[in-house]
Amino acid sequence: MQDAVHRAIETIWSHYTEPVSLSDLADAAILSRFYFSRVFREVTGTSPGRFLSAIRLHQAKEMLRDSELGVTDISYRVGYNSPGSFTSRFTRSVGLAPTRYRARARLLESGPLPEAPTPDPRCGTVVGTVHRSGVVPLRNVYVGAFGSPIAEGRPVSWDVLGPGRPRFRLHGLPEGTWYIRVAGLDGSVPDYGAERRMLIGTCPSITVRSGRVVELDVTLRHSSIYDLPVLFALPEFDCRDLALVAGVR
């Protein structure tokens, strides 16, 4: 079934600027709509519609960093009919309005990480180890707790792991279901003209209880076509010139 989902994702990347329906993607996968939706979620962790939306916003981030197009033009180019709807969705998912995101990316400023929560006995805690498994991050590794499988919006709790620090601790998680997502950039030298690859770590959803500690092991790996892009603004991912990213403060 991965081949079917692969075909659908290739269709999303090729046609994200156009209206793309569930039927279009199911046809590309050569599956019925109902079966396709179920298989797609099993492989990617989210629905086809949310995957499409994430790709559109990811491409919008790239255009804001690397082009001089206005926000209105970009919104139409990534498939939105309303610049207002695009701006609202972008701000909610990335954590910054489009114009502010563009300014920060070009000034090499950090993303809008919230203040790390302090320990609270009424909330849960997640601790764990990020295993590098042969990959070498460019600089930092980011760990965040999100309310959905997509790393979008401000994480409810987060930690930043520098070189040589494999353990993370996420305080202040309210009771409920959370998704722990880990991201970094590959520190190996890319081929000439190639972009640095993203490193990610995912795990199934976890249930947090007040006063309890959840222990996790997460392994970093290179991202694949089945992985959702990281939408939340982070300095290593959102620097206009990645050659300078090692100097980001």
Rank of each mutant, 00 (worst) to 15 (best):
R104Y: 13
S37V: 03
P174D: 10
L107I: 02
R154E: 12
G147C: 06
I55D: 02
V245H: 05
D191I: 04
Y101D: 08
L138E: 05
T72I: 15
R33K: 15
R38T: 14
R139M: 00
E62N: 14
T99I: 12
T125D: 03
R169N: 08
S133H: 04
A54P: 13
S157R: 04
N81F: 10
G153Q: 03
G162V: 11
G84C: 02
T91L: 04
F40I: 08
W178S: 14
H171A: 01
D238H: 08
A103C: 00
I55R: 14
I225A: 07
G49Y: 09
G111D: 04
R106W: 05
G95Q: 13
L108K: 13
G164I: 10
A105N: 09
S37M: 10
L107P: 09
G187D: 08
S110F: 10
Q59F: 08
V126E: 01
P149A: 00
P112V: 02
T118H: 06
M198A: 08
P155N: 01
R249Y: 13
E68W: 01
G162L: 02
V136S: 10
P19D: 04
I30C: 04
D191C: 02
V160Q: 03
V5S: 05
V248H: 15
V248E: 15
T72F: 13
P229E: 14
L199A: 01
W13V: 00
G201C: 04
H171E: 14
P174N: 09
G45M: 08
Y226E: 13
V71N: 08
L228W: 07
T118R: 15
